[in-house]
Design a binder for these strands. Sequence first.
DNA 1: CCACGAAGTTTGAAAAGTGAACTCACTGTA
DNA 2: TACAGTGAGTTCACTTTTCAAACTTCGTGG
Lengths: 162, 162
Amino acid sequence: MEKQTQGYGRGMTTSRPCSVANTLSVIGEKYSLLVLREVFFGVRRFNDIARNTGAPRDVLTARLNHLVEAGVLEKVPYSERPLRHKYVPTEAGRELQGVLLTLMAWGDRHLSDRPPVVFEHSCGADLDPMVVCRDCGEKVGPRSLTPRFQAEGWARTGQVAG
Amino acid sequence: MEKQTQGYGRGMTTSRPCSVANTLSVIGEKYSLLVLREVFFGVRRFNDIARNTGAPRDVLTARLNHLVEAGVLEKVPYSERPLRHKYVPTEAGRELQGVLLTLMAWGDRHLSDRPPVVFEHSCGADLDPMVVCRDCGEKVGPRSLTPRFQAEGWARTGQVAG
DNA sequence: CCACGAAGTTTGAAAAGTGAACTCACTGTA
DNA sequence: TACAGTGAGTTCACTTTTCAAACTTCGTGG
C-alpha cells in the first residue's frame, strides 16, 4: 500500500553495510536536509517550508511524511478547525544538527565568499564547528582513524595503496 | 555542452541562500556520499567503488566526474597502457570527513543495534564523534545557537513560536 | 589468435521529479 | 447567505533520472 522509495543501502544485499547509507535512507533524498534546515531555523509550516526550500508541494508532502515515519519530525496540530499541523523535530531529529552544521561549514569554506548565515554560539563567538573525539577531545583528522569492520568481507575489497 | 544537473539551491532565485544547499549541490546527489565513504576507506577504483556502493556504472561515472569537477576528488593514473585512474580525495574532499562521521554517528545511534563499522581514533578509543565550537570547545547543542542572516528577508519567514 | 579484465558507454523501460491546476475545509468580511 | 482567501494537499501531463544488462575499447597473458 505504501509507496516505497527505492532507497539506498538499508537492507540491500549488494552494497556495504554502513550507517552512512542507513542515515541517507532517512535524510538522503532531495530536499530532506533543506527541510531540516528550515525546521532548525524555526520554520515549521508547510507553505513556509515549501517556499524556503523550493520543493514542489507533492514532493514536500512525501518528504515530510517520510521524516515523520522515520521519527525525525513530529506532526503537531497548531489549529483545530481547520486542522493544521506544524512539523517539529524530535530528539532524534535535533541530533541531526551536527550533520547540518558540518555541511554548512564545508560550504562556507569552499563555496562562498562569505557565509550566508552565521550562527552565534552561546559562548559569544561566531560558530566555527569542529568534529572531535568525545574521549580525548582532539580534533578528528583524515589520518587519525583506523576502520574496524564488524562484518567480514568488506575490509580489503579495494587497493588501499596510495 | 555540459549536461547540467538540475541541482539544489546554488544560484536558485526562489529558495534561501544557504551553504547547506550549496554543499548539497556538490555531494547531495544519490550515491555521492557513499562514493566518498569508499574513498575514505581507501577504495579508489571504479569497479570496486561500483561494487561496494551498488551504484549503476553510468551513474557512478557521472558522480565521479561531478566530484572531480567540484574539486572534491582527483583523478590520478595508476597505470599507463592501458590508461587507468584511481580517485583520490583532494584537501577539500578530506575536509568532508566530518560530514560522513556525523552521518555515521547518527545512524549508529538511531538505526542499528551495533555499528557496522567502528573507527579507532589515534588516542586508542573507539571514535564517538562530537561537534564542538572551535572557540570555546563546548559541545554544540540544539539550543546554543542563534542564527544571523547576512541577506535580508529570510529571518522571519515562518512562525518561530514553539 | 583468443579469452580476459578494467573502465567506461549505450540502451530502452521503469521510476521519480516537476509546475500548474485543482480540491477540500475552513475563516473572515459583508 | 454569498464570496474571496488561505493552508494543505492531490492530480495531471510532462520531463528527467535511474536502472541493469549488453556492448565497446584498449591492452595483457598464454
